[in-house]
Structures are given as C-alpha cells and as structure tokens.
C-alpha cells in the first residue's frame, strides 16, 4: 500500500472508472477528471504524484495540458503518463515530445496496469 496520489484524466466514463478502480484496489489515492480544464483545477489544489492522461479530450487536449504542467516550476515534478490509442500512429512520439514521462497503450490491461504504474513511481524515487 503505497498511498501515492494518482489523477486519472479520461473523457470516457467507463474507462475512467475502470482505471481508477483498478488502481484504487492497489491502495493508491485516486483523483478523477473528465477533461483537461478540471484536471488543471485539481492539480492546483491537490497536486498528485502521477497523472494518467488520455490524449484525446474535449476542449484542451491532454498533450497541451502536459506542456503547461512541464513548463511550470510548481508542477514540473508531477509524473505524466499518456494513455494513447495506438502506439502505431505516432501518438507515443507526440506524447514524449510534449514532455510525458511515458505512455501506456490502450486498451488498458487490468492485470499489468498496477505494475506499470508502480514502475513509473519507483523510477522517480
């Protein structure tokens, strides 16, 4: 039970719930946002250790928000892991370019997700 705080940003409610519940089960404290604007607000008040960021979002997209976070001294330390639709279509490269610390290809594999997330958090430590 690590207890780190993870913000999950996804406009698909089912996916948001799935990712959140799987990680919650592992003992993480979970914050949820369904768009970049409300994610920004949450980060301002309750800074998480890691953001799982869907790239395609209504309004501001996930990569734009990532650039904002990485440009700001007060949020630069927060790990951002992109949730990309396909590794094939170049989303992974775009995610790295925007400053993401890593990416996870959708669909989410509930069996491997906790390990991957733990790996990112440990890598930071």
């Amino acid at each position: 039970m690590s207890g780190e705080r993870i913000l999950v940003v996804d406009d698909n409610k089912t996916n948001l719930k799935l990712v959140s519940d799987v990680l919650e089960c592992e003992g993480y404290r979970i914050l949820k946002a369904s768009d970049a604007e409300s994610a920004q607000e949450i980060i301002g008040t309750t800074p998480p250790d890691l953001v799982l960021m869907d790239i395609a979002l209504p309004g501001m997209d996930g990569l734009t928000l990532t650039r904002h976070l990485k440009a700001d001294d007060s949020t630069r330390h927060i790990l951002v892991v992109a949730l990309t639709a396909f590794a094939m279509n170049g989303d992974d490269a775009r995610a790295r370019e925007a400053g993401c610390d890593g990416y996870i290809t959708k669909p989410i594999d509930t069996r491997t997700l906790p390990g991957v997330v733990a790996g990112y958090l440990q890598g930071r430590a």
Binding site: N15, L18, D109, T110
Partner: peptide
C-alpha cells in the same frame, strides 16, 4: 466498437481476478 468492448473486457478481467 472497440471502445465499449474494452470496458467490457477490462471490468470482466478485473472481476474475475477477484480484486473487488
């Protein structure tokens, strides 16, 4: 079609692993 299907598979997997 894949988007909702990923939800179905994801939750079924999560449940059948006995996590909840």
């Amino acid at each position: 079609l894949r988007t909702p299907l990923n939800g179905i598979i994801g939750f079924a997997e999560f449940l059948s692993d006995g996590k909840p």
